[in-house]
Amino acid sequence: MALPDLAKKPQRFTGGHRACAGCGFPITIKIILQAAENPVVVGCATGCMEVTSTIYPYTAWRCSFIHTAFENAAATVSGIEAAYRSLRRQGKIQQDIDFIAFGGDGGTYDIGLQSLSGAMERGHKLVYVCYNNQGYMNTGIQRSSATPRGANTTTTPAGTQLPGKPQHPKDLTAIMAAHDIPYAAQASMSHWNDLYRKAKKAFAVDGPAFLNVLSTCRLGWATAPEDTVDAAEGAVQCNVWPLYEVEQGKWKLTFKPKKPLPVADWMKQQGRFKHLFRADNSQLLESIQQQVDENWQRLLERCGE
C-alpha cells in the first residue's frame, strides 16, 4: 500500500473530534479502520479516545460505535460478536462485519485485563486494539503498568526522593501471545505501513487478534505537537518499543533498527523524562538502558534472530 492510495480510502473516523492538537491515537484509529474491508462495529473503552470523539450530539465515528464503560471493551464487543454469530446462524444477517475493540493502555493493561483475557480465551472473532499512550491521560496523566520506568506522572511525580515511576512496563503483548490466539502484534503509529499490514492480518484471521499500538500523547509525554510521530518513531528506534508479530505461535520481528539509538536519546525529546538527566539520576538511566537491552535480546531469541 502506497501512502497516496491509503489517503484515498474513505475515512470512517472524521476530523472535528476534540483530541489535542498533535494527539497520536487518531492516526492509529484511521489506519486501522482503513485496513478493514468490511463494515465495522467499534466498541471503545472510556478514555481519551472515547471522550474526545463522541461528545453528544456529535460523533467522529461514521461506523457503528458503542461505549459502555472503562474496563470492559473486550467483553462488550464479545457480546456484539456473539450476537452477530447467533443472528448469522439463524439467517437473519448475511453481511460480513468486522469487530474492533479499542482500549487505552489503562483500559487494557490494568483495569480491563481480565475482560480482555476472557474474550481472547473464548475465541471471539474480534480485533482488540490497545492504543497505548503509556499512561492514564484522560484523567490527567497518571501511571499505568504500560508507563515507562522513570516517567514523571501525576501519581509517580518526580520528586527529591522518588525519580518517577519505579517499575518497568509489563509485557502485555507477550501475555496476549501466551493466550495462543492466532495473531498478536506490537506496532506503532509512526510506522503506518507496518501497522496497516498488521491490521490487515488481524482482520483476516479466524479468531481473536490483539494489536498493541504505541500512540503518542503529546500532553502526557510533554512533546511538541509537531513531534508526535517522531516521538513514537524514537521509541521504535531505541528498542523501547520493538515492532513484531506472533502469528500462529510464531514470533517474528517486523522491523529492526539498523543501529539502535540509546534510550536516553528518545527520552531527551520528552518532558516526562527531564529529571532523569540530572546527575543524581544517571544510574537510573543506565539501569533503564540495561533493561531495554535485555528485553531486546529476549525478543531476538523468541524471534529466532
Binding site: 467483553a75 462488550t76 450476537a83 483475557s117 476472557g118
Partner: peptide
C-alpha cells in the same frame, strides 16, 4: 464469560447489537 461484570457487559453489547 469470566465474570459477572463481563456477563452484563456482553449482554449489553449483544442486546445493543440487535
Amino acid at each position: 464469560v469470566e465474570s459477572e461484570h463481563s456477563a452484563m457487559s456482553a449482554t449489553v453489547g449483544a442486546a445493543a447489537a440487535g
